[in-house]
Structures are given as structure tokens and as C-alpha cells.
Design a protein around this nucleic acid. Structure first.
Lengths: 153, 153
DNA sequence: GCATAATAGTTACATTTGAAACTAATTCAG
DNA sequence: CTGAATTAGTTTCAAATGTAACTATTATGC
């Protein structure tokens, strides 16, 4: 199949479409918790990671939520300042510190989770249950493949 | 269906998954044209829009590629400085200016398009032709629905 | 053991981005 | 017409982000 006459239709270009969709969804979600709780996207993600997997070190948080260590460090600093999380230095390796939600953080987390799941639920109304599974499977495979390509290049 | 015991599994949370996937794909693509051509994501998108639909005014570009007018203005300034696009003030309404690729811009565009389509092609290798169509359809519907939700809220 | 390398996390600086104010041109109401 | 309101696009200032350098601590090679 010769590629002589290639035309880029931006509106049908997969990377572009994924980017626009993800951005719209991410902003919509952010609207739900930004104003009432004063959290940035990165701060909320750190809280969500700790809400589910605590205790975690900062680098473990970063691995979980695909965020580099500088971003994690800054989000953690902001959350610490508001006493939403707690930090305990590891006595065996004092470079590490394990993080967990504070009582205050757990309470805020517990109020945000239903908002987030509610939004996801509304979003999913666009799809049938089978379609949801299909979408998730396709996204998984795309993601895995994109990671492979990235390493190869 | 009562929602008493909700847990947020970040790794299965649709907004999060879309965000991580889109980010990975977008960065991979950016790697292809950033270094050789010195373009930012926004600059490349403006060029792609003009490559396909020129002439466009700055606000039309913004509508096409879902980018606010400040971002478009800055991308256009950068592209003008490098003579990759041309601007012609509308004589009937001198607030407007129509934009199009310059010869130099068209030449760069023509070299980037195959790279972009090539990457999309590699990405699509993860899916069968039917699955590609399915994914695109599902994304379309999700996007339309997410826009509705945003307006409603 | 001791110097060297590696790791966890933070800080500093430069660049990018976003929100709001601003300029210039046009439209609309009376 | 004339002044208020809109619209296109730019500039400004503050906040967010990325890269690289840095500190502190632990692991490794010899």
C-alpha cells in the first residue's frame, strides 16, 4: 500500500482525539473538587493513591500515578501544609518516608470519592455495560503497546 | 443499587486512564517532531489545522483544535517569527486576520505528516481494523456525552 | 573500612500555561 | 450619528511545570 498521498485529518487523528477527550474529562472532573476542596489535579491524585494503597513512599506514589518525583514532592508539600497527609521517616532507611492520609485527609477523601465516581457513572451513561468493558480493554492494549513503542524508539 | 461502600480504584478510574493514555501517546508523538523541527505541541497543532483548513482566522483555529485564544495567539506568534505561517489582515474587518502556511511551513508540514501518520499506524497495530473503528466510535460518543455533562453542570 | 556510585527527595531556575486586563475594531441601541 | 456593548487578538502577571543541580543517606567495589 503506497503512502504517496497522505493527508492528516487532525479531527480523525487518534493521538489528537485521545488528547482532547482526556482533557475535557479531566477538566470536568477537576471542576467538581477544585473549588470546594482547593486541590490541584496532582494533589488529588496523590490523595487518591494514598487512600487506596497507603502507606506509600513518595516514589511509590509516583509509580502508581505516573507522575515524576518533583511533581509528587510538590503535591506532598502542599498536602502536608494543610495537614491532609502524614509523613513518617523510615527508620531503616532515613532517605525514605512513608506517607498516609491524616484523619482530616481521610475525611476529605471520603467526600470526594463519591463525586468522582458519580461523574464517572454519568460519563459511562454514554455506553452500554458491554461497551464499557470493550473500551477499557482497548485502552489497556493501546497503552501497553504505546509503552512498547516508546521504549523501542 | 446502594452506593454505601464506594472505593475509588484509581487504576480503573476512567478519567484517570484516559489521561494517562493520552499523555503517553502525546509525548511519544511529540518526541518525533520536537527535536528535529523545534515545534511545541500547540504550534504543531496550529500548523496541522492550517495545513488542512487554511485560510483560518486565529479564533477559527482555536475552535478546530479546542485551544483557547491565548494559546493560539502565542503559537501563531512563534510560527510567524520563524516564517512558517503568513498572516493577512481582513480588509472588511480589520480585527481579523486570516492565517495560512507559508511555503516553508508547507514544506515542514509535509515532512511531519508522514511521521505523525506513521506513529498512528504503529499505535493502531495494537488493534484490529474492526477494533479501531469501535474505539473511535466509543470515543466519539464519550466526547459528545462529556460535553453535554459539562454544559449541564 | 573507605572512596565511589546510586537512591530518595528537595530546591532553584527557566519555560509554559492560565486568568484577567487591555487595545483596537466593529456592531448595536436609541 | 453617538455612546455602550461585542468581538478579535495581545499583553501582563501569577501559578504550574520541567530540567538540572543539590542534599542527605545508603549501597557497592576494592
Amino acid at each position: 500500500m503506497p503512502n504517496a498521498l497522505q493527508a492528516l485529518e487532525l479531527e480523525n487523528f487518534l493521538p489528537y482525539r485521545l488528547s482532547v477527550l482526556a482533557q475535557l474529562v479531566s477538566e470536568s472532573l477537576h471542576d467538581l473538587y477544585a473549588e470546594p476542596f482547593g486541590l490541584s489535579v496532582t494533589q488529588w491524585r496523590v490523595m487518591a493513591a494514598l487512600g487506596r494503597f497507603a502507606p506509600l513512599t513518595a516514589s511509590e506514589v509516583g509509580q502508581r500515578i505516573v507522575m515524576d518525583k518533583v511533581a509528587v514532592s510538590r503535591a506532598v508539600a502542599g498536602l502536608m501544609k494543610r495537614d491532609l497527609i502524614e509523613r513518617a521517616t523510615d527508620l531503616n532507611d532515613r532517605r525514605r518516608a512513608s506517607l498516609r492520609l491524616s484523619a482530616k485527609g481521610r475525611s476529605m477523601h471520603a467526600r470526594i470519592v463519591p463525586l468522582a465516581l458519580g461523574y464517572e457513572g454519568e460519563l459511562y451513561q454514554a455506553l452500554s455495560p458491554e461497551e464499557r468493558e470493550t473500551l477499557n480493554g482497548l485502552c489497556d492494549r493501546l497503552f501497553a503497546h504505546a509503552k512498547l513503542l516508546r521504549k523501542a524508539a
